[in-house]
Write a protein that binds this DNA or RNA. Sequence first.
RNA 1: AGGCCUUUAGCCAAGCGGUAAGGCAACGGACUUUGACUCCGUCAUUUCACUAGUUCGAAUCUAGUAAGGCCUACCA
Length: 547
Amino acid sequence: MMENTSNFIKTIMKQELENGVVDHILTRFPPEPNAYLHIGHARAIITNFELAKSFGGKTNLRFDDTNPVKEDVEFVEAIKEDLAWLGYTPEIVVYGSSYFEETYEKAILLIKKGLAFVCDLSQEEVSAYRGDTNNPGKNSPYRDRSIEENLKLFEEMKNGVYPNGSKTLRAKIDMSSPNINMRDPVIYRIIHINHHQTGDKWCIYPMYDFAHPLQDSFEGITHSLCSLEYEDHRPLYDWVINNCDVKHKPRQIEFGRLGITNMIMSKRYLKQLVDEGYVKGYDDPRMPTLTGLRRRGFTPNAIKNFILSTGLSKINSTIDYEMLEHFLRDDLKMKSARPMAVIDPLKVVITNYPEGKVEELPVLNNMENPELGSHTITFSRNLYIEKEDFLEEKPNKHWKRLSKGLEVRLMNAYFIKCEEVIYDEKGEIVELHCTYDEKTKNGTGFNERKPNGTIHFVDAATAQSATFNLFEPLILDSVVSSENFKERLNPNSWVTKEGFVEAWLKDTKPMDKYQFVRNGYFTTDYESKGNKLIFNRIVNLKSSFTK
RNA sequence: AGGCCUUUAGCCAAGCGGUAAGGCAACGGACUUUGACUCCGUCAUUUCACUAGUUCGAAUCUAGUAAGGCCUACCA
C-alpha cells in the first residue's frame, strides 16, 4: 500500500485518539441499494476503509435501506461484489432495516420526551408551513398533541391503520431555525409496500436523518463520513444523537465529492445511458461504474492508489482523467506481460526468407521484469505490421519507422528493409515487399548499423485473429454536469478493430492483462473465446510522438 | 430573516505563527530493441481569492469584501 498523505479527517481522528475522545476508530460505508456503484463510491469506500485501517480500526458495510420504494436486492448483491473486488472485507455486513425495532423505540422515546409528534398535514401543507430560506416556518396545528395521543396515533400508524401519506411523525425542534432541516423534520412516514429485507413487517419507515445517526450509534461508529451536502444535516444528526439517550455518540464529518474530467457519475445520467441504449449496459467498459471499469480492465490497486494520492478535502474536486491513467499504467507496468499485437494490419512479405520456413525466437514476457517468464514467437516469410508504422511518402528525419528504402528492427526478430510497395488497381497498398538481414537476428548483439527505429509485428503463419475494442471518453468535454449530454456524446467512444495477436495468446482468459507493445494496456474481455479473441484497451501508452 | 461551507500552480493537494511538501499534466535533456519505461533538470517571492489589521514575523490569527457551492422530498 502506498503512502497516503495527511488530510483533515485523519488529523481529526488522530487528535481525538490522542485526547481520549475515542479509543478506537470504526467507520462505515452506507450505500443505498438502489444503483450500481461507481468510482465516486470507490472513493467513499477507500476513504472509510483506509482511514480506519491507518489507525488499526475497522469498517462496517451497512445497506441504507430505509426507503423500500427505491431499493432492490439486485443492488445489494452487486455492491457486495464490487466491495470484494476492491479488496475490502467489512467488519460486519448489516442493513439499516436490521435496526427498525430499535429505531422505532427511539421514536417512542422522543414522543415520551415531548420531542416528537404525529402530524396530519399533507405533504403540500408541510411544505407550505415550512417557510423558505427567507422566511421562518409556522408550527403545525398538530404540534401540541398530548404525549398519550401521539403514542396512540404512532402505534396505529405502525399497525397499518392509516394510508400512505396521511400522517407522519415529526421531531419537535424549531420552525424558525435558519437551517431548514431543523424545522420539525419528518422522521417517520407511512409506506405500505413490501421491503426487500423486512417483507411486510413494517409499513412505517424512518427517514435517513433519523435512522442514520441512530444506526451509527447502535454500531458504535466513531466517525460517520459523508459528502458535503450533508453539512446542513449535521445539526439534526447531533440533535438525534443528543436526544435519544444513546450510549455511543458518533461524529459526522463531511468531505467533498470526487469529479473526474470527461466522466459523469450522476445516477440519472447513468441510467439514461443504459435505458436509452447509448451504452451496452452498466458493465459497458466505457461506464464509470465499478462493474464497467472492471470489464474495461481497471485494477483495484490502480483505483486505490489514484484515490489515495488525490487526497481528501472539503472541495468538490475535478481531477484530470490523466491522473487516473497514470495510476493504471503505474500498476500494470511491471505486472503484465508485453506481447505483440497488430491492431490495424498491413501485410509484409520477406522476399529473401525461404517459403515454408518457420523460426522460433525466445522473448521475455516483460523486459523490465524477468520474473514474468518468457515465451516464443515465430518468424516466417509473411508477417503483419501496423499500418501506421509505414509511411508512403518520403519521410523526414524524425520518422523512426518504416518507409520505402528504410530499414527498421522488427522487435525481437530481424532488421527488415522495405524494397517495394505493392498496390492494387485502386491504388491502395496491398502489401510491402521487404528483405531481412540474417546477421541482425535478435540476441546476436549486431551493431554494425542502426535501424530507423523498432516496430512490432506478428507472424502471419501463426497469428491469432483478434478483435480490439478501443475506447475514448463517452463525453467530449470536461464539464462534470450531465446537462445536454446527448449533444456532448463522443461518437468515437468505442471503436472496434480487427487484427492479430501472437499465437502465445490463444489461451488467454477473461480479465488477463497485457501491454501490447506500443499499443497500450489491454484486458481480455468476458466474451473472448478460443477462436474469437476480444481485447479491451484499458489505457493507451503515453506518447510524445505528435510533437 | 437567511443559514452553512469553500478559496494554495493548468488539475489535485500538504501546510495548523518561523519564511510555500508531494503527485498528475507540461516543458527541456540523457538513455532506449516500445516515440513507452527509467533517469536528470525546469515549473507559486507582483507567492497562498482580495483588502485592511494584529505580530519581530501571517497561507496560517482578526475584520471586511469578492467569487463559487449546498440547503425550502413524507429521497439518501
